[in-house]
């Protein structure tokens, strides 16, 4: 082979790889730019009062405490519903189900549920929870709607974690005379727990940032009082940001918008980051 040709191949490789590098850099720069922009614009309005006070003077003053607490209620409620159901489905799929038609139908429905647009969950929540079951625009309706959204993610993450438990763990448990259920409950589940929790927290962080599903099932722009029961509507951070962005062009709204955005991405990205770091640590210290 001619030396000339070899050199050409080398330059070609370097050029194309540089192109890939450029794509990765562009992506990173765009998204880092957005985060940085929000930090710079929003940091000024973050204060203890902003986090702990209610809005005042038609949203132009005061804080966003009710929206933060509303988002907390909605996501906590979603977790309380979705984690047991999702975990049970994952346990069924990985520990009980025999491979076959039913198993693949359930898997297909999980995959498709994950692909359904969030606004359709919102429509369903409005038709079923709010109207049909008569729960009204409330924390309960919103939490149940969000629970449906995060369930597929929890199922896949939990199943993944359960699958990684080596067969020898189960065999050792059976060898000690434990039943199938004892093995699942005392050996497999505790070993898979960290993976399940981190996967669930990741899905929960996404749920906290969702707007469309809670728009007509749980959220309102302004409440006079903090919610006192599960049947009360709430303010929620993502919906609050949407409303602040579209409600008007008042000068005083601008810093509150960016401040709310910063709180939301701090919450969502912070939760995700914590889960990712813990997961990386677990993977590193894995005993098998």
């Amino acid at each position: 082979m001619k030396a000339n040709n070899l050199k050409k191949r080398k330059y070609y490789t370097v050029a194309v790889f540089a192109l890939f590098r450029l794509a990765a850099l562009l992506t990173a720069a765009a998204l880092a730019g957005i985060v940085l922009f929000l930090i710079i614009k929003g940091a000024g309005s973050i204060s203890w009062d902003f986090l702990s006070q209610s809005p005042a003077d038609s949203m132009t003053k005061g804080g966003i405490f009710p929206a933060i607490i509303g988002t907390f209620y909605l996501t906590a409620g979603a977790m309380l519903v979705a984690l047991p159901l999702g975990l049970a489905t994952a346990v069924y799929l990985s520990e009980y189900a025999r491979p076959g038609r039913i198993n693949s139908i359930i898997r297909l429905s999980v995959a498709n549920l994950a692909g359904v647009p969030s606004v359709i969950f919102g429509l369903f929540g409005l038709a079923f929870f709010v109207t049909k079951l008569g729960l009204g625009i409330s924390i309960l309706s919103g939490s149940l709607t969000l629970a449906l959204i995060i369930m597929p993610t929890i199922i896949s993450a939990s199943e993944e974690a359960l699958k990684q438990i080596p067969l020898s763990y189960r065999e050792a448990s059976y060898a000690l005379g434990a039943s199938h259920w004892q093995t699942v409950f005392n050996v497999v589940l505790p070993a898979a727990l960290p993976g399940i929790i981190t996967g669930s927290v990741l899905s929960l962080a996404r749920a906290a940032g969702e707007t469309a599903p809670i728009m007509y099932t749980a959220a309102v722009f302004y409440t006079l009082h903090l919610p006192s029961s599960l049947f009360d509507p709430v303010m929620a951070l993502p919906y609050h940001i949407y409303k602040l962005a579209t409600v008007g062009t008042h000068e005083a709204l601008v810093p509150i918008r960016y401040g709310s955005c910063l709180v939301l991405i701090g919450l969502v990205l912070g939760m995700s980051l914590a889960a990712i770091i813990i997961r990386t640590k677990i993977r590193r210290n894995k005993q098998w």
């Binding site: 159901l85 549920l113 369903f124 449906l148």
Partner: peptide
């Protein structure tokens, strides 16, 4: 315990399928 747990998990295993069917039905 074994039989009960198998029944419980089999029933709960259908949650996702039920949810998808309910969504389709109500849409």
């Amino acid at each position: 315990g074994d039989r009960q747990s198998r029944i419980i998990f089999t029933v709960l295993g259908f949650t996702a399928l039920t949810a998808l069917l309910l969504i389709v039905l109500f849409l």
